[in-house]
Nucleic acid binder design. Structure first.
Lengths: 208, 208
DNA sequence: TCTCGATTAGTCGAAACAGACTATATGGAG
DNA sequence: CTCCATATAGTCTGTTTCGACTAATCGAGA
């Protein structure tokens, strides 16, 4: 798979919008927000303008016209070039077809979990479960709400995907907590011993 | 939650290693690789040296000594400061306790799925399922292998977590494909109509 | 009419990142 | 004994990306 000239996923979103019709950058943002796509693609002005600039440099989009309203800075309306259409569809196919490794914050945390005591770890994990449950409930509500506004599920698949992953994480964390507390986790003995030294190993700062 | 002075997760890994004992940067890399932690935290020299520099600037780590072996460039051995210990433990607690929103590549792809025809989408999703199954099989194998080398599960939780998420994704994609093919996905009618126009809407490039 | 807050529409500097490059040491093949 | 591949231990450069900031416009209310 050839390397992408502009690799920020926001560039995919920009091309997706221009695939429908020409637009100026700020309009892209409002359209994405309306459709809730900013939940799936990180959206920030600073990135947007540099991504738009990069796409233009690479010939994937091109300015169609610049209009000025009142005394605001003029806005450039862009359209997708033929090359841009090909790039967009190719990239989209790749993203849907090929799983890629993602580095998550939680994985980073889990990696060094052993630095905290088993007891504190389960407390934190239980807190996480509570927060996950809340989040899941809210995601369900939001999905029901927009579905009620006759947005077809077709346009909500990415939120469903996120929801499913959160649910899986919740189940897994629950199981992990049970294993630590019931003493069946392999390695627990050493973990406890490590933290049972004189004064313990963990610092005394608050867990905020 | 106070903002982190150095927010790159690699900084967490650096502090985690120095929490055990002083080390020089290259040794951090080899240690992380040995323990498989580079699967959970993105590890690159260019980032490592800038992260180490930032940590030193912020007073979270400090040079302990510089040694020179033969005519190689001299290596600086760092240790964690008291402030660094507090920062490390605080950050770790936060990562374990609080779910944060993660933006995945797949979510980006799913968001604009409708730009491809239902037929092509299912083909791509089936391919994804095949690749996911393969990946899952390999992850299982690797986990069994290292567990066989008496690495306690405690030190493999992050890989287990990743595996669980992949399995959940596989199940969900399978269901989605069934719904598209059986015609029960809400919005399918419009999706098909959109792509059934004269000549269709999708470009003719190969799906590589 | 003045003013406040929300909306629109961005800019700027610093941090993070990819990946190409440098340079020494080491061990085995020929 | 020389040559080459590999492992060690990084540096350098150009892009990307982020987060904080700026600044004009508009409508509502005092």
């Amino acid at each position: 798979m050839a390397k992408r000239k502009v690799s920020n996923p926001l560039a995919l979103a920009v091309m997706a919008l221009l695939y429908e019709r020409p637009m100026h950058p700020y309009e892209m943002v409002s359209t994405m927000r309306e459709r809730g796509k900013h939940e799936a693609v990180r959206l920030r002005y600073s990135s947007l303008y540099s991504v738009v600039g990069a796409l233009e440099r690479e010939g994937l989009i091109s300015p169609l016209s610049t209009v000025r309203e009142g005394r605001r800075p003029e806005r450039t309306v862009y359209e997708l070039t033929e090359e841009g259409r090909a790039e967009f569809l190719g990239w989209l196919r790749e993203l849907i077809r090929e799983p890629v490794k993602e580095y998550t914050q939680f994985a980073a945390g889990l990696s060094f979990m052993a630095a905290l005591s088993p007891k504190e770890t389960t407390t934190l994990l239980r807190e996480r479960m509570r927060l996950l449950e809340e989040e899941i409930r809210e995601m369900h509500e939001r999905l029901d709400e927009v579905a009620g506004q006759s947005v077809p599920r077709l346009f909500l698949v990415e939120s469903e995907h996120e929801l499913v992953l959160r649910e899986a994480e919740l189940r897994w964390v629950g199981e992990l907590v049970r294993e630590i507390e019931s003493g069946t986790l392999d390695g627990l003995r050493g973990w406890e011993a490590y933290h049972a030294g004189p004064g313990g190993k963990t610092g005394e700062e608050d867990a905020g």
